[in-house]
């Protein structure tokens, strides 16, 4: 087990290096003179000549853009590996400090989201696989495809109008994750307050994910149901419920678990727009605001860190795969 994880960690190195190279290339896209910078960000009118000039100067200094290329690259590698991304241009606080504030919020949001998606989609997928092409299967598949096709930002602003603006219903908060002054409340009130704030954003983040995962579960389950060992289980006299739940699901879950790793980056990217709409101070909003104000150190840090996080979650789901599938052994046991 340990040696397997070690081997996988070593295999991650070239990928990690690739991530660093790509982010390094992105830094080089940064405009070298204030005029270009200003013309490019015509939309974000926040940019004036003074700030444009200082951004270009700071960028040159931070990444040593006046030094020869190999030196620049080595410096960037060093920064990426030690997670030292410098200070934000906007408030001159260390980038990592800002990220440590934002990351828990996004992780909380995404973990709840993934959890809900799995809780709903996997049973749906199993259910539709048991009676494929039936009425329920078709209805579920069309409804979920509708959900999948509804743009989350559109749904978000409509839900805000309906449930939170006070024009129709005034049930749910629509900005932030904590009411003003709520941090002085006892802890359970704070938990309640946060849950209250998270309802709408989580609805917007989850509904689109049902289609893919339930479809995936369905396909995986259909594949399993065709297998001979399902017939064996039936021949044993097991009830259909047990055949599906014990012999079917466990096998079908194997590929589904590995998907978890690939869901994370999608949700991290998806939350840019939802966090922005609901003013949630997570990674997505931090990233977007940094992009608007050309806060390069923060942008680079987020890109690098989220790529690394994804890499780690891929590793985790690989390890999980081995844990749930006894066919794959960590060390050679058989002759």
């Amino acid at each position: 087990m340990a040696s397997y994880v070690l081997k996988r960690l070593l295999l991650m190195i070239p990928t990690l290096l690739g991530i660093i190279v790509i982010t390094f290339a992105v830094v080089h896209l940064a405009p070298g003179d204030p005029a270009t910078l200003m013309s490019q960000s015509a939309e974000s009118s926040s940019m004036n000549e003074g700030s444009a000039k200082s951004i270009v100067e700071e960028t040159k200094k931070l990444y040593g853009l006046d030094k020869p290329l190999p030196v620049q690259f080595l410096r960037w590698v060093q920064r990426a590996v030690t997670l030292d991304f410098g200070n934000s241009y906007r408030d001159h606080r260390p980038v990592m400090e800002k990220i440590w504030e934002a990351l828990p919020i996004t992780l909380l949001l995404n973990i709840i989201t993934i959890f809900i998606i799995y809780i709903i989609s996997v049973p749906l997928g199993i259910y539709t696989a048991v009676k494929p092409r039936g009425v329920a299967d078709r209805v579920v598949s069309v409804v979920l495809l509708v959900f999948y096709s509804l743009p989350s930002f559109w749904v978000a602003i409509m839900l805000m109008v309906i449930f939170g603006s006070g024009d129709y219903l005034n049930w749910l908060p629509i900005t932030g994750i904590l009411s003003h002054g709520a941090d002085k409340l006892p802890w359970y009130e704070i938990v309640m307050n946060i849950s209250w704030h998270l309802i709408l954003p989580i609805v917007c983040l989850t509904y689109g994910g049902f289609a893919f995962l339930s479809r995936f579960t369905r396909a995986s389950m259909l594949e399993v149901i065709r297998q001979d060992y399902i017939r064996t289980a039936r021949a044993k006299g097991l009830s259909e419920w047990r055949v599906i739940m014990k012999h079917g699901v466990r096998n079908a879950l194997i590929p589904i678990l590995t998907l978890m790793g690939t869901l994370l980056p999608a949700l991290l990217g998806g939350s840019v727009i939802i966090e922005q709409i609901f003013s949630i101070p997570g990674m997505g909003r931090l990233g977007f605001e940094s992009i608007l104000s050309r806060d390069y150190p923060v942008i680079m840090a987020i890109a690098t860190i989220s790529a690394m996080l994804t890499l780690v979650s891929i590793l985790l789901s690989d390890v999980m795969y081995k844990v749930v599938d006894p066919r794959i052994t960590f060390d050679k046991r058989e002759g």
């Binding site: 001979d228 060992y229 064996t232 021949a235 096998n251 749930v324």
Partner: peptide
């Protein structure tokens, strides 16, 4: 399984791998 038992051609695929 109780009064009538059954075995199949392919023992590898007929047994649940997990």
């Amino acid at each position: 399984g109780k009064r009538i038992g059954m075995i199949f051609q392919e023992p590898m695929t007929s047994l649940n791998p997990v």
